[in-house]
Design a protein around this nucleic acid. Structure first.
Lengths: 108, 108
DNA sequence: ACGATACGTTAGCATATGCTTACATAAAGT
DNA sequence: ACTTTATGTAAGCATATGCTAACGTATCGT
């Protein structure tokens, strides 16, 4: 499986998206993150493992705590891939045309 | 499960992304699409069903043929969701700062 | 040293998913 | 009408996945 596939699968899981949102701004410990959900702590730990493995999250160990935060570079790669996906071939032109059509319909 | 979740799951499956790419430009029959892959035709038919159900693809029936093409509106919704996801809270500022940092490092 | 704290890891389970085989449907040609 | 062609549907299987419970592992405070 390609790198990007792994990353895509990571963010598709709703729980992992929620986790990502949590560590987008703040750097939080595993426990703090887990406390936001109604599943067990190990479940969250496993999700964090997945997110870290595909570079969407970074850990900083300090004492017994582990602080997680979103990894901008991983997010950027993902976004870049999706940008490429939309722009493939003539898709862009097609969407532009469709948008034009819709605008025309709305005005009439 | 929310609407967008269903759509996200749909495009995460690599095979479905390939199918989407195929019908991005051209309008193809189910059979024509299936012939591009080494799995059975029913497998592709099921994938098409998933893509149609979440509005990523549209069908036009003509005789016994069914012509599929990408649905720009569905793709637009998905893109919009992702755009919102990136922009959540301070993430944008954070990424901008990171990018600045990287540029500075590269130059030195 | 020793217990407590904050984690990750493993085994196992229930469910979801992509695939195949076999069958159903429906339009077209003869 | 009957066959052919193009396709969807259903049943079943193998594998993947998210979860829990139990256990392992550092690090800190005393």
């Amino acid at each position: 499986m390609s790198e990007i596939d792994e990353t895509l699968r990571a963010i598709v899981e709703p729980r992992r998206r929620e986790i990502l949102q949590l560590v987008l701004d703040d750097e939080l410990t595993a426990g703090a993150i887990a406390s936001h959900f109604d599943v067990t702590r190990p479940a969250i730990s496993q999700h964090l493992g997945v997110l870290e493995k595909c570079g969407l999250v970074r850990v900083r160990r300090q004492g017994t705590r582990r602080y997680y935060r979103a990894e901008p570079e991983g997010l950027a790669e993902l976004r870049e891939f999706l940008r490429g996906f939309w722009n493939t071939s003539l898709q862009q032109l097609k969407m532009a045309a469709e948008e034009e059509q819709k605008r025309a319909d709305t005005q009439s």
